[in-house]
């Protein structure tokens, strides 16, 4: 049920992307990079809390988890085929391995949505574990689809 909800969400964002295909490829790249930058901004402090490097603050976690939940749905229509030739850190697999790319995208969205849900409960251990799961989803994504440097 949940899964199909996200699948529809993903299909819709992709559809919007198609409708906006006139946007210049270099702009699309800039926008999707902006989403990643903000994901870093709101995830970084959570990662530090999960690993005990910063004091746990349930309010910040809840707020950031909400931001991340929205952000996790934003980058994907930026990976339009028109951006294939643009200078970026995206690996060719983004465009050549569509099934794997979509799977990784929905994994990130699912884990982030779960984080938003648990962040509204009071279970600090569960929240920290779920922050770890989101981190793994980001890392798995970077492993296969981003060129470092």
């Amino acid at each position: 049920m949940k899964k199909s909800f996200f699948a529809v969400g993903l299909a819709m964002t992709l559809a919007t992307g198609a409708a906006m295909a006139q946007v210049k490829p270099e702009i699309l790249v800039k926008q999707r990079q902006a989403v990643m930058t903000l994901q870093g901004k709101y995830f970084g402090p959570l990662g530090a809390m999960a690993q005990g490097k910063a004091p746990y603050n349930a309010q910040i976690v809840q707020r950031n988890a909400g931001f991340l939940d929205n952000l996790s749905r934003m980058p994907w229509d930026g990976f339009d085929p028109s951006t294939k030739g643009e200078k970026s850190h995206a690996l060719p697999a983004v465009f050549n391995d569509d099934a794997k790319f979509k799977e990784a995208a929905s994994r990130l969205q699912n884990e982030t949505a779960k984080l938003y849900q648990v962040s509204r409960g009071g279970d600090e251990a569960a929240v920290k574990a779920q922050i770890g799961a989101v981190g793994k989803a980001c890392g798995g994504y970077h492993e296969n689809f981003r060129q470092k440097q």
Binding site: Q39, G40, G44, G47, A48, K53, G135, H142
Partner: peptide
């Protein structure tokens, strides 16, 4: 120690 950079970037898995 964390696998996260100061700007919140998460290291590849």
């Amino acid at each position: 120690l964390t696998g996260i950079t100061p700007d919140g970037d998460v290291a590849a898995e």
